[in-house]
């Protein structure tokens, strides 16, 4: 069985700083990581491979330096890595991204065997859209399983898969036919520590690097900025509230007295809350 995991290299959001004057992201010196949500997808893919046999290919689209993420994935235990990189992809929105990734996935199918499962993370931590997975599924006509909490059954002979999908207010148990696109929910597994053997293998493994042309993507009007129906009109920092918080003086007050002052302030500002609390309290 061939499984492909789509990943994204993202800036470590905890360390993002915004330039105070220009309102642009200061990327310099911000470390990049594999989108954390994608690790759940990668681990799940490797577990299936370990159980059913086959190969895991990781795929990413990005600048040449995105190879770092692929190398990392190889050290975790992925078998093959494909980097899709081309200046024509710059400025892609989610529609253009799914076009390019779908093209690369089709090429991967031709070169290395058709994938039975394509995984992505639930969403990325920089864009947070959760749109690229469904986009790929639609373009490649893969059955779409998003927010998957658990893969309950996989029957390769019958080409069937059963999963538990996180829905509003409950869990849907869905069964469908391969090939599928699965977006994996966070917290569903824990990434393994790669073995020493994996590290050596990763060091020897050549990352397959494709341009748009290499991947057989010829319609460049559908790529990058040109292929993106959305445009970013404006980027700005959230405005500060005009007033800062009203500070309740704490000097020389016991915590009991301070608590009384806080409660008084709450009731003074939101009188309705006191009534609500009374009703709640009497109902107990």
């Amino acid at each position: 069985m061939h499984i492909v995991v789509c990943m994204k290299q993202v800036p470590d959001s905890a360390q993002i700083r915004v330039h105070p004057v220009t309102n642009t992201i200061m990327r310099q010196g911000v470390p990049t990581i594999i989108n954390p949500y994608d690790l759940f997808a990668l681990e799940e893919a490797m577990r299936l491979r370990d159980r059913f046999g086959g190969e895991v290919t990781v795929l990413t689209m990005g600048p040449p330096m995105a190879e770092d993420s692929l190398r990392k994935a190889l050290t975790f235990g992925a078998d093959r890595a494909v980097l899709l990189t081309d200046r024509f992809f710059a400025g892609s929105d989610t529609l253009a991204t799914s076009y390019a990734l779908a093209g690369a996935l089709a090429k991967i199918g031709e070169e290395f065997g058709k994938p039975s499962i394509v995984f992505t993370g639930k969403q990325t931590i920089d864009g947070d859209t959760a749109q690229v997975g469904p986009g790929i599924a639609k373009r490649l006509r893969l059955n779409q399983l998003t927010y998957v909490a658990r893969i309950a059954e996989l029957d390769l002979a019958a080409e069937e898969i059963t999963v538990e999908r996180r829905a509003e207010g409950g869990v849907q148990v869905l069964s469908t036919r391969l090939p599928v696109l699965v977006t994996m929910l966070e917290g569903t597994n824990e990434m393994r520590r790669g073995t020493l053997e994996d590290a050596f293998r990763a060091a020897r493994t050549q990352v397959v690097t494709w341009s748009a042309a290499d991947a057989g993507i010829t319609d460049l009007t559908k790529c990058g900025l040109r292929g993106s129906p959305t445009i970013v009109k404006k980027v700005f920092a959230p405005s500060a509230r005009a007033e800062k918080a009203h500070q309740i003086p704490t000097a020389d007050l016991s915590f009991e007295a301070l608590a009384e002052a806080v409660m008084g302030e709450i009731f003074a500002r939101q009188p309705a809350i006191e009534g609500d609390l009374m009703r709640f309290s009497s109902g107990q």
Binding site: I25, I125, P229, V232, K233, V235, P238
Partner: peptide, 14 residues
Amino acid sequence: PTFGGSLLCTIMTL
């Protein structure tokens, strides 16, 4: 919000 909420961006489909 984008980049984990550090910035806001206005997006349009013209």
